[in-house]
Design a protein around this nucleic acid. Structure first.
Length: 562
RNA sequence: UGGGGCGUCGUCAAGUGGCUAAGACACAGGAUUUUGAUUCCUGCAUUCGGAGGUUCGAGUCCUCCCGCCCCAGCCA
């Protein structure tokens, strides 16, 4: 391999958070430490938007020689489940990141968080509220009008302490009381109008069981968890920008180590829905087969679809990190995918919609083993042999009885090259009584054998094919966008769905080497696209393939233009 | 109409007062090709949401205006 003389370097990420860290390091902050965290709530599966955050947090730690924790933000027992923490761990690992022994849970800190709440009460900075949720809302005021103080705001510290302890002991029903920070009911920032710190929830927690009757709110748990873990840069999405002053207030009120929060714009993708609400809706209303349906933008869905972790990481690097809301073109993700698959996927031949071809001048009963390169982009991938015989299948769309001018494929009287094999010419079109083409009679040119001494003759088109006698029948699932709208969030779910997002073909004919494809194995079906043997349904000997993405199709574009 | 953010090519996104406003994707041409794939060339913002102003010089500084996003959960 020759060393590359290119001076082009992959553009190093220079986004604003990267710069902040560089500046912090230069200024000697945090003793030169960089410590981030990825803090998912275990109430759903991770999706491509989370991947952006994962790559950012783990990537920054990696680049600066720091560490990144995996921390589950499990402060709401009524929404969170073990199933989700398992899937999250699997997905982060699959993406290629390692949190070593730093797997943490906000629930690990419930004890400390409670003590800190007591400390806050003692400092006169928190009080127990008796008002109902509705009343609290009324007292909060509106965006343009200040709120009013709660009648319980000036409760004596001693009383607050007792009440809070009783809340902890489970003496009150859900919703009866709540602990609030005493900040400023007239603040322009709604989050500072005496935010709720603790609520009563008589619910089983997936980790702490029935130990607790009160659970901290996000704002009380997050910053302190960051503090406990020694996080230096707490990176979150834009909607938490308004929470930053509360994040800072809590840490300052306690006088503990104070990490800094930075916000970036979350990822949006064309033709894709990423909101948790809609993702859950897709699953519960069974518009998809589950969280890992290959059409889902979840990590598990993308994995099953055949995406690679490297392609997703590359994508996350290319989209950049900024504060402007943006919607990335899905074609960029597809580009990253194809770029990698082109280099790595083994080429094979598979006929999705078979049309039989009989080579009338080929000896009956003869079988030739032809040599085929596994991947022209990777000489190390080697070669394999493919059986060739008198009866073959070609793709239905590769034949037209009355073709337009620029159709380079098979038509009556026309010649094409069969990949790795011979040039054939169409002599006769056989039809059934409905007038449908059922079979083609062709002749082959024995002088045109691939790799042979007289193979030089050029024809315009090359087709993939499979020998009838040796073909393996398989199911193939063709996927398209789940949504037909470029901005599916603007429309409600049944209407926004693409009715043709899944097409299952059951009588595909594959070259024999595919018979024992292992679940999870990826291929390029020559001229058709990239496919993966489904990890759930495919079995060695009875393979089922998912189309990851089609190849770029210039011919389709020409046809569209007419 | 309170507060917090954001507006640079179709889409992302560099740019932090001084050469003709990076790069990628997309798109459009062309070359090579036993995948109409890949690869390779070429083109693609006289202009930075708008209007004024400061300056020898502004996407970058100032003023005003316009537009978009987020916040009134005992969700995160």
């Amino acid at each position: 391999m020759e060393p590359s003389l290119s001076t082009e370097q992959p553009t190093a990420p220079t986004h604003f958070i990267h710069k902040i860290i560089e500046e912090d390091l230069a200024a000697g902050k945090n003793d030169g430490r960089v410590h981030t965290r990825f803090p998912p709530e275990p109430n759903g599966y991770l999706h491509i938007g989370h991947a952006k955050s994962i790559c950012l947090n783990f990537g920054l730690a990696q680049e600066f020689g720091g560490q990144c924790n995996l921390r589950f933000d499990d402060t709401n027992p009524v929404k969170e489940e073990e199933e989700f923490v398992d899937s999250i761990k699997e997905d982060v690992k699959w993406l290629g990141f390692d949190w070593a022994d730093r797997e943490f849970y906000a629930s690990d800190y419930f004890g400390q968080l409670y003590e800190w709440a007591v400390q806050l009460i003692k400092a006169g900075k928190a009080y127990v509220e008796d008002l109902s949720a509705d009343e609290i809302r009324e007292y909060r005021g509106t965006l343009s009008e200040p709120g009013k103080n709660s009648p319980h705001r000036d409760r004596p510290i001693k009383e607050n302490l007792n009440l809070f302890e009783d809340m902890k002991k489970g003496k009150f029903p859900d919703g009866a009381k709540v602990l609030r920070a005493k900040i400023d009911m007239a603040s322009h920032n709604m989050n500072m109008r005496d935010p709720v710190l603790y609520r009563i929830l008589h619910a089983e927690h997936h980790r702490t069981g029935s130990d607790w009757r009160i659970y901290p709110m996000y704002d009380w748990a997050h910053g302190q968890s960051d503090s406990i873990e020694g996080i230096t840069h707490s990176i979150c999405t834009l909607e938490f920008e308004d929470h930053r002053s509360l994040y800072d207030w809590c840490l300052d009120a306690l006088g503990v180590y104070h990490p800094r929060q930075y916000e970036f714009a979350r990822l949006n993708l064309t033709y894709t829905v990423l909101s948790k609400r809609k993702l859950i809706q897709l699953v519960t209303e069974k518009h998809v087969s589950g969280w890992d349906d290959p059409r889902m933008p979840t990590i598990s869905g993308l994995r099953r679809r055949g995406f690679t972790a490297a392609a997703i990481r590359d994508f996350c690097e290319r989209i950049g990190v900024a504060k402007a809301n943006s919607t990335v073109d899905l074609s960029l993700l597809e580009f990253c995918l194809r770029e990698e698959l082109n280099k790595t996927a083994r080429r094979v031949m598979a006929v999705l919609r078979p049309l039989k071809v009989v080579l009338t001048n080929y000896p009956e009963g003869q079988v030739e083993d032809l040599e085929a390169q596994n991947n022209p982009e990777d000489p190390d991938a080697g070669h394999r042999t493919i059986p060739f015989s008198r009866e073959l299948y070609i793709e239905q769309e590769d034949f037209m009885e009355d073709p337009p001018k620029k159709f380079f494929r098979l038509a009556p009287g026309k010649e094409v090259r069969l990949k790795h094999a011979y040039i054939i010419q169409c002599q006769e079109v056989i039809k059934n009584n409905k007038g449908e083409v059922t079979e083609l009679h062709c002749t082959y040119d024995p002088e045109s054998k691939s790799g042979g001494p007289t193979a030089g003759r050029k024809v315009k088109g090359t087709l993939h094919w499979v020998s009838v006698l040796h073909a393996v029948t398989a199911e193939v699932r063709l996927y398209d966008h789940l949504f037909s709208e470029i901005e599916p969030d603007k429309i409600e779910i049944p209407e926004s769905l693409n009715p043709n997002s899944l097409e299952t073909i059951t009588d595909c004919q594959l070259e024999p080497s595919l018979k024992d494809a292992k679940p999870g194995e990826r291929f390029q079906f020559l001229r058709m696209g990239y496919f993966i043997a489904d990890q759930k349904d495919s079995k060695s000997g009875a393979p089922i393939f998912n189309r990851t993405t089609p190849l770029r199709d210039t011919w389709a574009k020409i046809q569209k233009k007419g």
